[in-house]
């Protein structure tokens, strides 16, 4: 079997009649599925909410500590109506 045989065999094979197909419904269904937004991942949302709550709690606790460290005399002058500077 040489190149010419291959050409002749290909030519013969091209005469084959392929069964008809109809994929219109399947294609449109696939496109509709692709267009639909993905439902939110509930576990991920719960984890994000828990993380946010933990971060907020840490901020509420850490802010006075940070302020006290940065301005140690602020409490002393708070009632006198004057600042440390």
């Amino acid at each position: 079997m040489d190149e010419r045989d291959l050409q002749r065999l290909g030519q013969r094979a091209r005469e084959e009649r392929v069964e008809s197909v109809d994929v219109r419904g399947r294609v449109l269904a696939e496109l509709a599925r692709a267009r639909r937004p993905e439902p939110p991942d509930r576990a991920l949302l719960a984890f994000a909410a828990a993380s946010l709550a933990a971060a907020a709690a840490m901020t509420i606790f850490a802010l006075p500590v940070f302020q006290a460290l940065e301005e140690p005399l602020a409490g002393l002058f708070a009632g006198a109506g004057i600042g440390p500077r």
Binding site: E16, V18, E19, V21, V23, R26, V27, L31
Partner: peptide, 30 residues
């Protein structure tokens, strides 16, 4: 979508004939 369905309808047979060279399995071809 209807316009795309018309495009599919006009060309699907030629595409199927071309893909018959890639697989002989009808289900896979579709």
């Amino acid at each position: 979508g209807a316009a795309f369905a018309r495009l599919v309808g006009r060309h699907q047979q030629a595409v199927a004939a071309q893909l018959a060279r890639f697989t002989r399995d009808r289900g896979l071809r579709e």
